[in-house]
Computed example of a mutant assay.
Amino acid sequence: MRFRPCIDLHQGKVKQIVGETLTQDNQNVVENFVSELDSTHYAKMYQKDQLRGGHIIMLGSGNEAAAVQALQAYPGGMQIGGGITAENAASYLGKGASHIIVTSYVFRNGELNMPNLLAIVAEIGKENLVIDLSCKERDGKWYVVTNQWTTFSDFEVNPVNISELEQYCSEFLVHAVDVEGKQSGIQKTLASQLSQWVSIPTTYAGGARSIADLELFNSLTAGKLDITIGSALDIFGGNLPYKQVVEYCNQQS
């Protein structure tokens, strides 16, 4: 299990928000934390601590400059996602991203858009692609949600579908949207199932708030999944010491 750090950008600032409150007009976004520090501060900190494979997520428009600054502060150290398409994906790799993360581009109109998936794979190669399977529970099953986590797709996160998608990417990023940003504990069922279903590197995000949560996560997943933590960390206004998380995860990996 590795700790994968994050930089979430909203309106050009580093923030931690409750993901499911995102809307196109940004009128009712619940912000857990708005940093006075810029994106390069966090990128350089992650580089200093030798944390690779974290992600920069651009939540809506107005984040391009801050995202590129972070990429250039830690070349090859972080992935990037948020509004990226086959047309602009290669440019982000050229600006320092290690991988491109996609959700809404490959899940369109409530279903998997295979032409778009094939287009971006042709452009940057599967080795540079991370598919975001951020999902919510409905009727006891997990479904990918898109459009800033506001729209259910018909794509179920299950062993068959995961096996199919693994042919087109090198990693998965999975936000447990029901608990994302709420510091209410990890989604135990999802974490456990993912660890059984995936055969490529996969990062789980959502709800972790303590070392006890990390211990539980590590036990449930047998160390197979990586984890990211946002608003619970003291660097984002929370109570969980960032340094303590780094040390714990380094011991596990």
Rank of each mutant, 00 (worst) to 15 (best):
S195F: 13
Q187W: 03
L51R: 11
R52K: 13
S134F: 05
T189W: 11
E36L: 08
I84E: 00
V245G: 01
L214G: 03
S195D: 14
R209M: 11
L37T: 10
K224W: 06
S210R: 10
L214W: 02
E171D: 12
I227S: 13
Y74W: 15
S253I: 14
L194H: 09
G185T: 00
A66M: 07
A212I: 08
S199C: 11
L129G: 12
F3D: 07
T203N: 00
I101H: 09
A191C: 03
F33A: 10
G125Q: 08
F3A: 03
A66Y: 13
V157T: 10
I84C: 02
Q244A: 04
T203M: 06
C169Y: 06
Q11A: 09
V121A: 11
E171F: 07
S184E: 06
G53M: 01
N161P: 03
F155L: 06
R138K: 15
G60E: 05
A73D: 02
N32A: 01
F217T: 10
Y92H: 01
N250F: 10
N63E: 09
V157E: 08
K48Y: 04
N128W: 12
R108E: 14
R108K: 15
R209A: 14
V121Q: 12
V157Q: 08
E64N: 13
A73I: 14
S210K: 05
S219L: 10
Y204G: 03
G181H: 03
Y168V: 12
L118I: 12
S184N: 12
I120T: 08
N109Q: 15
I56H: 11
I235R: 05
P201F: 07
V246D: 01
A191Q: 06
N218G: 13
G181T: 01
S134K: 05
S61V: 07
L37E: 14
L59G: 04
V14S: 15
S184M: 04
G206C: 03
T221I: 09
Y143F: 14
A97K: 03
Q183V: 13
W197Q: 05
C249W: 01
V102P: 00
E180F: 04
H10E: 14
